[in-house]
Simulated assay, not measured.
Amino acid sequence: MDFKEYIRVIPDFPQPGISFKDITTLLNNGEKYREAINELKSMVSDLKIDLIAGPEARGFVVGAPLAYALGVGFIPIRKSGKLPYQTIEVGYDLEYGSDRLAMHSDAVKPGQNVLIADDLLATGGTISTSVKLVRELGGNVVGTAFLIELSELNGRDKLPGIDVFSLLTY
């Protein structure tokens, strides 16, 4: 299945020179969305996965249904200040500034195997920060899964030794 026909490409968004990959056109097609999640499930089914973690917000729309399909739990990774219980946080740099991601301090038990899922792998900043959070709690990151990978931005380089599974590559 070529899922690219279900991804809307928007030139010059959010700024000139960027070719934005809009997944909403895949998400609003129930049959194709289900097929995409099932394809990701097939890609990672040989891994021993206890939990799936997904950074907000689009990591939720990939990670949660993938966790459901695999019969494992889901961990939301949120921006700082968004989770109600005690958290751990890790900062990361953005193109024009910085931000912090947080996870509940009891979300992962030492030795649990965690797959991190998101909609897009670009520069790898969000995912490498998510990896740090899981590892800080003693979790074992067994891989990462994405709907889309933008290969020219070399996000894989920030994930040494971690398997990367991508449904689509641009």
Rank of each mutant, 00 (worst) to 15 (best):
M1D: 10
M1Q: 15
M1Y: 14
D2N: 15
F3H: 11
E5F: 03
Y6H: 15
I7M: 05
P11E: 14
F13V: 10
P14D: 10
P14N: 10
P14G: 10
P16A: 10
P16R: 07
S19V: 09
S19A: 13
F20E: 03
K21D: 05
D22W: 01
I23R: 00
L26V: 00
N28V: 08
N29Q: 10
N29P: 09
G30S: 04
E31T: 12
K32D: 06
A36L: 01
A36H: 06
I37Y: 02
K41I: 04
M43L: 11
S45P: 00
D46Y: 02
K48G: 06
D50K: 00
L51R: 09
I52M: 09
P55Y: 05
P55C: 06
P55D: 05
E56M: 06
E56Q: 03
G59S: 03
V61R: 04
V61T: 13
G63L: 04
A64W: 01
A67G: 01
Y68T: 02
L70D: 00
G73C: 03
I77K: 11
T87E: 09
E89G: 15
E89D: 13
V90K: 15
V90N: 08
Y92N: 15
D93T: 14
E95N: 06
Y96V: 09
Y96G: 01
G97R: 07
G97I: 10
R100Y: 15
R100K: 14
H104W: 02
S105E: 02
S105L: 12
D106Q: 10
K109Y: 11
G111N: 10
G111P: 02
Q112D: 01
N113F: 05
L115D: 08
I116R: 10
I116T: 14
A117I: 05
D118W: 08
D119P: 10
L121H: 14
L121T: 13
A122P: 09
G124I: 12
G125V: 12
S130I: 13
L133C: 05
V134K: 12
R135E: 14
R135C: 07
E136D: 14
E136L: 15
L137H: 14
G138I: 10
G138N: 06
V141M: 13
L150A: 06
N154T: 08
G155H: 12
D157G: 13
P160L: 01
G161R: 11
G161V: 07
I162A: 05
D163W: 00
Y170W: 12
